[in-house]
Amino acid sequence: MQQNPAVSVPVKKPHEPQRRSDWKQAVLLLLPMIAFVLVFTYLPAGMSLVLGLFHYHLLGVHTTFAGFTNFKDALTYPIFWIALKNTLIYAVYMVPLTIAGAIGVALLIDHKSRYYAMLRTFVLLPYITPVIATAIGWLWMFNPQYGIFNVVLHWLHLPQSQWLQSPRMAMPSVALYTLWHGLGFNVVIVLSALSSIPKHVQEAASIDGATGWTRFRRITLPLLSPTVFFLLIVTTIGTLQAFSQIYALSGGTGGPAYATTTLLLLIYQTAFQDFHFSYAASMAMLLVLLILLLTLVQNWLSKRWVFYQ
């Protein structure tokens, strides 16, 4: 359509002027978020890469270049290896226990009724409780003389345990608390995945003669596998980051005899009790590398067993 040039207004290109005005507003609206992200994530992430390479002190003393000495010191520090071993062994049983436990409890209470909804409430409740406050009750239950665990073992005529005071049982005791506190979160995720599995698939298999176990093994589990993979990644990271419950249950020491000294607890003690920041930062970097490595391995392995619909 031709317009009379005399009355034509300059034809706007549809988007350009609007885009320019949006640009200014976008900067304004995004600025607060970007500022927070830059200062408290990107900047420290960058610093974490280099902090280990220096001798940094909070007050007075000049920061000097250290090269890899901090890393070398960490790798030749016996406690570092104990902490690494504790962290890895803890993860090796904690991760499968959490996932298997979550699937088991979820299958058990996956039922639409008030009764089972109430039980789901009980299972999830610990997840939102503060760790330090609820660890008190557990410290009491773990008490070797008067705690409920040893009382029950005594009634059952089974050998009692020193629980948190025994170097062998301290970490498993921490695991028990952690399962209690965190399992509900995983159960809710599995329940939500279960609810998205179409009922007719199960029914069809049932009509074809599949037993309960076969249905679980051949239908439910493959359909759950993306969820299991998600839980695997999240639980592994969470397990390697365990801190508050260990601090609470070991009285802040990581004892007895370093039995509950995990990498993060050691990093905390090195940085914020002994104030060796750069040394601790190099350990933190090693922990990050460990997490990265495990995540990559799990990701790679997942191609063999995760089934996407």
């Binding site: 408290f40 994530t41 420290p44 974490s48 902090l51 920041f277 970097m285 922990l287 990050v288």
Partner: peptide
Amino acid sequence: FLLVLMVPAEALLIPNYVI
């Protein structure tokens, strides 16, 4: 913004303290 989720929390403890 999403990349923030990829940064492990324990890497940030010490640098954020310093900041």
